[in-house]
Design a protein around this nucleic acid. Structure first.
Length: 469
RNA sequence: GUGAUCGUAGCUCAGCUGGUUAGAGCGCCUGAUUGUGGUUCAGGAGGUCGUCGGUUCGAACCCGAUCUUUCGUCCCA
């Protein structure tokens, strides 16, 4: 028989029971937190139509979408012209002709599609969370895969700043619980960034300005200064701007700095910004978020351009490791589907990175191991039916019971129990007697005892003392 | 997308400037020992050297292609 080499596709992983136990635990923590804040679960299909995803991520994003080849005689409809175009390298045109479906690239666009399709039956404001894998045809690197989980929560259909405030509280609560005491939500505002661009005389290229700003922590202060000088920003104005960027004070002082910058540059600071900053701060305080868990940081820009209001990014507090989440307010998530006027706030947890960090920082210390409490086994072939009956009795008592399939040597039984982290082994001895007897042995200290079948649960649950000799 | 890089037993790796039957440790299997498992001892199995092609009398080793890994870059989680 011909065999194939057992091999994984590039950039994807298997998940072993130990890893899955941790991931499931993390996801359950997140799920409980979302539910506590009134978010409901939503899932969308792995497969979306090309038209839904096309163009939503820019030209470079398009290239990273995994396409699904059409079924059937999909080449029949191609004209000579199509073939000529394909041979001359017009691969995009060809791709459009032979694929109409693709794997989802993120959770935001499918969510926008869902809201657009179902808005008639939905009650707004609508809150959902979603934890599902997404696929990207990117080149894999450490911590970056072609299949990975995203975890998003959105509140759509309200402009109230209580949404932003609760998102900040949610971040603080979850990361605190998971064991990141130094985590911090950085908060900025797209309108402040626009105001800054305008005040610097860069309003015609505010996009480029924000890209530069977003890269500040990587490319450094000097390259930012060079950029500003190239754009004709005077050193005096630059100096005032750096104060604004680097100060990171809480709103009363932040507002003062903004006003100061506004007067130096003779530009208008929109009044709405000032009230929004104050209101958000009050709301966050009302939610009793410790002040160490958030700070206003106007150097935060974020790459995605659909944000229109407050934006967030979460620093894990572990040095050298960057962001573990981010989000912000958007005004027109569903505009591309012809639905206007839905403002919302979305946040995302970088669950893959959080998992890596928690494993690295040893934060999974005492989560429960899903192992069975007792391993039932026998070395006698004729005893299997009795063994099965006893195991089933324990299971009806709610005790997690594993059963060694077969009648192996004792060595095998104990090695199995040890590998599976099962604390107690129960070996059935029938012998000539009519009554069934089990030898119970506790693996940690080799304490052992002979018991009747109906007594097993008492010992397994620790209700009776072990003979430790 | 782009530049480099890695690939030898289940795992971690040796393997000299190309030269007979490719090695070690750990793990695995068998037997003995053992408090019915953990210790110790003895023995054993397992590799077309990532894949395909080329150079050569001869390739794990040299050359090419391809796949995979890791590291930059683009972008992002």
């Amino acid at each position: 028989m011909a065999t194939v080499k057992a091999q994984l596709a590039r950039g994807v992983r298997d998940f072993d029971p130990e890893f899955l136990n941790r991931r499931k635990w993390l996801f359950s923590q997140l799920e409980e937190a979302f539910m506590r804040y009134g978010f409901l679960p939503l899932e969308t299909p792995a497969i979306e139509l090309n038209q839904t995803l096309q163009g939503a991520y820019g030209e470079e994003g398009d290239r990273l979408i995994f396409r699904i080849l059409n079924s059937g005689q999909y080449l029949e409809s191609l004209t000579d012209e199509d073939w000529t175009a394909a041979r001359s390298g017009q691969i995009n045109r060809f791709t459009r002709l032979v694929t109409e479906k693709a794997l989802r690239f993120d959770l935001t666009v499918p969510f926008a599609r869902y809201v657009s399709m179902n808005r008639g039956n939905m009650v707004f404001p609508f809150k959902r969370f979603q934890m599902q894998p997404v696929w990207r045809a990117d080149r894999p690197q450490r911590g970056r895969y072609r299949e990975f989980y995203q975890c998003d929560a959105d509140l759509i259909g309200s402009e109230c700043l209580s949404s932003e405030a609760q998102m900040v509280a949610l971040y603080a609560e979850v990361l605190g619980q998971l064991g990141f005491p130094s985590a911090c939500v950085r908060i900025s505002h797209r309108k402040i960034l626009s105001f800054m661009a305008e005040a610097l005389g860069l309003s015609s290229q505010s996009r480029a300005f924000m890209v530069q700003l977003d890269k500040l922590d990587k490319s450094g202060k000097e390259s930012m200064s060079t950029y500003l000088t190239e754009q004709g920003v005077s050193t005096e104005v630059q100096k005032a701007w750096w104060i604004l960027i680097e100060a990171q004070p809480a709103p009363p002082e932040l507002l003062a700095l903004l006003l100061q910058f506004s007067s130096i540059t003779q530009s208008d600071l929109p009044a709405s910004i000032m009230t929004e900053l104050e209101t958000l701060t009050h709301y966050i305080e009302a939610l009793r978020v410790p002040s160490s868990f958030y700070r206003f940081d106007l150097s935060l820009a974020r790459g995605l351009d659909y944000y229109t209001g407050f934006i967030f990014e979460v620093d894990s507090g572990v040095k050298g490791m960057g962001s573990v989440g981010g989000g912000g307010r958007y005004d027109n998530l569903t505009a591309s589907f012809g639905v206007d006027g839905l403002s919302g706030v979305g946040i995302s947890f970088g669950v893959e990175r959080i998992l890596d960090l928690m494993i690295e920082q040893n934060l999974f210390g005492d989560i429960p191991i899903p192992a069975a409490k007792v391993l039932m086994a026998t070395t006698e072939p004729d005893s299997m039916h009795n063994l099965l009956a006893c195991a089933q009795e324990l299971r009806t008592q709610g005790i997690k019971t594993d059963l060694y399939a077969g009648d192996p040597k004792p060595k095998k039984i104990f090695q199995y129990a040890e590998a599976r982290q099962i604390p107690v082994v129960a070996i059935l001895k029938t012998k000539a007697e009519r009554e069934l007897q089990f030898v119970l042995k506790r693996l940690t200290d080799s304490a052992h005892i002979q018991v009747k079948p109906q007594e097993i649960q008492d010992w397994v649950q620790g209700n009776k003392p072990w003979n430790t000799q």
